[in-house]
């Protein structure tokens, strides 16, 4: 099956010589929910940014939704992101000046096409009837649901989630993770999530552990306790 995200020996070196990613290779097939974990500074955010085309890799090859983004120009890359990729960030990244509905319709306002009606998507993330509310009046959990709705509305091939539950309590966080899980299972969306929370990672199908910019483990996701155990192991070796 065609991978929605495919990294081949991807490296990312920052201007001062820091090597954040070392020849990382990773394939995410459609419908798979992948969690990337690692200590602070292990390169997990850089991995997500490079895979999503938000940051430029300095070595290797990145394919996103079937297209080689390595040589894609900025505008074309942005259009690819708009049409085929969804994002969920820890800090929500909604436009506080717009309403819930306007935020979800944003990709269309920016020239994209909506795969599903805004109201239907809002209904599916549990925000039915809140379309006209200003985003500023919502709770954190509701805001993150808006972000998920905005990520889903274009019918993306892949969703990138950067600590999506980092600012939420466990119950609210679980609801957001449930939405991502559903997107993977029902809509066959590939999900690549970066997190430091073993409980959040336990919702995934596959767990990738990073240390010093290298993949040190890649396999089916075990139980949360076992994840925490493995994570401690990786960090201990790193320290």
């Amino acid at each position: 099956m065609e991978s929605v995200v495919s990294l081949t020996s991807v490296s990312r070196r920052y201007p001062r010589g820091v090597l954040a990613l070392r020849e990382v290779s990773l394939d995410v097939p459609a419908g798979q929910f992948v969690a990337v974990m690692g200590a602070t500074g292990s390169g997990k955010s850089t991995l997500l940014h490079c895979a999503a085309g938000l940051d430029r890799r300095t070595g290797g090859r990145v394919r996103l939704a079937g297209r080689d983004v390595t040589r894609l120009r900025e505008a074309a890359l942005t259009r690819l992101r708009r049409d085929r990729v969804g994002f969920v960030f820890q800090s929500y990244n909604l436009l506080s000046e717009l309403t819930v509905g306007q935020n979800v319709a944003l990709p269309a306002r920016l020239g994209g096409r909506l795969a599903r009606p805004v109201d239907e998507v809002l209904e599916s993330v549990g925000l039915g009837g809140l379309g006209r509310r200003p985003v500023g009046e919502l709770s954190g959990g509701q805001r993150q649901r808006v972000a998920v709705a905005r990520a889903l509305v274009t019918g993306p091939a892949v969703i990138f989630a950067d600590e999506p539950t980092g600012a939420l309590d466990p119950t609210t966080g679980a609801q957001i993770l449930g939405l991502l899980r559903t997107a993977a299972d029902l809509d066959r969306v590939g999900v690549l999530m970066v997190t430091h929370d073993p409980v959040a990672a336990a919702w995934s199908d596959r767990l990738v552990l990073l240390r010093d910019g290298e993949v040190v483990a890649d396999g089916p996701t075990p139980q949360a306790e076992a994840i925490a155990e493995r994570l401690r192991g990786v960090s201990a070796v790193a320290a």
Binding site: N93, P107, L110, G111
Partner: peptide, 8 residues
């Protein structure tokens, strides 16, 4: 944020 949402 507008750029992240897909605005060139």
């Amino acid at each position: 944020v507008t750029r992240l949402a897909g605005g060139t």
